[in-house]
């Protein structure tokens, strides 16, 4: 028996919106640690890793480890039927091939349940080592989303370059070129507005903007985004999920042939 209950159900709706465009089908892993997912996009250059720790839920019961294969577009369709203020419960009984999503309105006057078929998914699980990154940028997530959106009207790729001057995002295309420089800015009224750059070594990497734009679907989850980079390693773009975990996106850099 697996059951989780999340009073702030909108978080789960936002999580699904953050991953459904990148990944079609994925295995959710349920264990005593929490509710997690690791999935690659169909071209195998980007990976999303989600962790929602069991302590973050109002109720969490997982009698034995369980893998639930779900079509994310279908799961998102079901979660869209939950109101933003609804409490969401996810339930799966042992030995069944369905999962139930239950939505309760805050005043308990409307209770809906939606049953979805599970699927068998063959997926590769990658071991991601904890790495020391040469440069870590923390900045407002809305600012990062804006930069990715603006640069994608200029070119297909973004060059992210971290130096002691700050972080530069550059794109080039048929109509011209663009450079956006963000400097460290820790002296802000609200900590969520800060831009903090920790640099051990200058790093310059190139990435496909299509993926970066897809990652920014997680912007409603967190005020800040963390971008971790090292030479010739996949970038990690991380959004925290309200004290209960994270969504991390990994994207392989484009390498000069």
């Amino acid at each position: 028996m697996f059951e989780l209950r999340l009073v702030q159900g909108s978080l789960l709706k936002k999580v699904l919106e953050s991953i459904k465009d990148l990944v079609n089908d994925a295995n959710f892993d349920c264990s005593s640690t929490g509710f997690s997912l690791q999935a690659m996009d169909s071209s195998h250059v980007a990976l999303v890793a989600l962790l929602l720790r069991s302590e973050g839920f109002e109720h969490y019961r997982c009698d034995r480890n369980l893998t639930m294969g779900m079509n994310l577009a279908n799961m998102a369709k079901m979660l869209k039927c939950a109101g933003n203020d609804d409490i969401i419960t996810i339930k799966a009984d042992d030995g069944t091939d369905t999962v139930t999503f239950m939505f309760e309105s805050p005043s308990q006057d409307k209770i809906s349940d939606f049953e979805m078929k599970l699927m068998d998914i063959d997926s590769e699980h990658l071991g991601i080592p904890e790495a020391e990154y040469e440069a870590i940028i923390r900045m407002p997530s809305a600012e990062f989303a804006r930069i990715c959106r603006d640069l994608s009207s200029i070119g297909d790729t973004v060059v992210i370059s971290v130096t002691k001057e700050g972080v530069r995002f550059s794109a080039r295309g048929d109509i011209g070129a663009a450079n956006i420089v963000c400097r460290q800015n820790a002296t802000v009224d609200k900590p969520e507005d800060a831009t903090i750059i920790e640099m051990q070594e200058p790093v310059t990497l190139t990435f496909a903007l299509r993926y970066m734009n897809s990652f920014t679907k997680a912007t409603p989850l967190a005020e800040q985004v963390t971008i971790s980079m090292s030479s010739d390693l996949p970038v990690v773009v991380e959004y925290k999920v309200a004290g209960m975990g994270y969504i991390r996106y990994y994207l392989a850099p484009k390498i000069e042939e």
Binding site: L47, H125, G127, P129, K254
Partner: peptide, 14 residues
Amino acid sequence: KRTQFPLRLYFAMT
């Protein structure tokens, strides 16, 4: 020309 390598070249499969 820049190319993109799959993630499994960076992270081993478990």
